[in-house]
Design a protein around this nucleic acid. Sequence first.
RNA 1: GUCCCGGUAGCUCAGGGGAUAGAGCAACAGCCUUCUAAGCUGUCGGUCGCAGGUUCGAUUCCUGCUCGGGACACCA
Length: 555
Amino acid sequence: MNVVEQVESQLKQSIEQAVIKAELAGRDEMPEVILETPKEKSHGDYATNMAMQLARVAKKPPRDIAQDIVDQLDTEAASVKSVEIAGPGFINFFMDTSYLTDVVTTIFDQGDEYGQTNDGQGERVQIEFVSANPTGTLHLGHARGAAYGDALANVMEKAGYDVEREYYINDAGNQIDLLAQSIDVRYAQALGEEKTMPDEGYRGQDIIDLANDLAEEHGRSFLDMNEAGRLEAFREHGLNHLLDQIKHDLETFRVPFDSWFSERSLYTDDKVHAAVESLKEKGYVYESEGAVWFRSTDFGDDKDRVLIKNDGNYTYLTPDIAYHQDKISRGFDRLINIWGADHHGYVTRMKAAIAALGYDDLLDIKITQMVNLFENGEKVKMSKRTGKAVTMKELIEEVGLDATRYFFIMRSNDAHLDFDMDLARSESNDNPVYYVQYAHARICSMLRQAEEKGIATSEQPDLSLLTAEKEIDLLKRLGDYPQVISEAATKQMPHRIPQYVFDLASDLHSFYNAEKVIDQDQLALTQARIALMQATRTVIQDALALIGVHAPEKM
RNA sequence: GUCCCGGUAGCUCAGGGGAUAGAGCAACAGCCUUCUAAGCUGUCGGUCGCAGGUUCGAUUCCUGCUCGGGACACCA
């Protein structure tokens, strides 16, 4: 427990004791003490609505109850400097803020471990994300999923979860046959032959490039093979090539994976068949019209789903169920899938399958909403370069890696995202990425100067000298960090991190303009402020690292 | 028709059962002989989509409607 949590917990206890002393409620009727930090500074450092909550039990007006609580409160034990009753019955606490400086000491002791919480208690979580088909390059939607998934994994790790990141490779099934056929067509065309693309074929520039390379490297040699052999060769070549490209793009985007799971392995290990058998044993499988069905309607789906088509082939759903059964067998306490908005229709049936296998609440599916690019105030539909959809790689080249990461993560995953490329590119105060990075660079600059001027650093600076308004604001913000981590992780809302670090940067800039850190005439104060700057730098760095954004020392 | 997400300041978005609803941008007015002005300070700006319900209290929760986006194969 950190300083802030200790103080809050102590205050809560004191409030409870006061309620009991004032005979307003017994232990069993005690509502949970809710402490909030008022937005308005004049409403104190903390406020509680306890009096309103007790109104019914105590059968008295809230303001009278508030007065009773205040009368009985042990202010000293709770580090409360003064108390006010306000509005309909709020109790506002003004704290003795001297405890706040302990935050700096804590950050020194813990370094980049500051902010760690134990919300996860070591729970094993698997996050499966991106999982784009290896039939093309990664696009905007994938980039959002990648940024969100990576940040979520980082934050959950920080909050004490044992996280594994997995990418599911759809390297079996129809789309791979289509990939082979598409390469076949482009390859023939590259050699000047006529060949028509199947309706569902992949028409992207990436496939054309790939086929051109093949033609250049191998000439007409593939044309001499029989069709089955040629398609098989193209299948393998295309798969390897595109998967390498995806891996490379993700690496560039600073999104690492612990494991890459192949759909094919499900077939070679006979797990698809086994999945159908499992559902059959549980009694959720029946045959009709020559097909084998899963009775997903038992689990809230609006219709039953086919597992094996009347031509004997599996549907897309079946290997997916097998895949999740495999995940289950690996012993995770929780599974999180991150899917694009276009897949939300599969949520119910996937969850139905998991429930049918007997693991009701194991799977959580997060949906990331659509991304729209804007440039010069207009919606960008297609890449100027290729005339096709804009790829993740292009976006990074256009606006930079840090901006791309930051912009994707700063919005809630379930809101549509308007990505303003001009803003992301601009090197100005309009751009939140630069604003935060600048705060970090500013601190580094001050620390450099302190060193150049030969300011002796102190092992134990007198932090009680940090009493200016902007210093208190900064200290409070630093103290909030563990709670931000906790919320971001447990609610799976990594967008809280960019929001927090933006506010922290804002506090830093305000402080910078109000107070001077390096003052040769006031060594003790300078040392205390340098300590505050070092602590702030640590937290900015850490928060940015969670969302995959660099913290530059100079700008 | 069914399902999912959203509707909050001119724009992009946070927030969320409580006190005067926040931030950035835009507009306007100030601040550099002083640690990076990629910064700071202030002003302007809102029936929180509409209507009911629950509650001492709803922008927040519930229901209905409405607008915008997306999804609804024995495709993957």
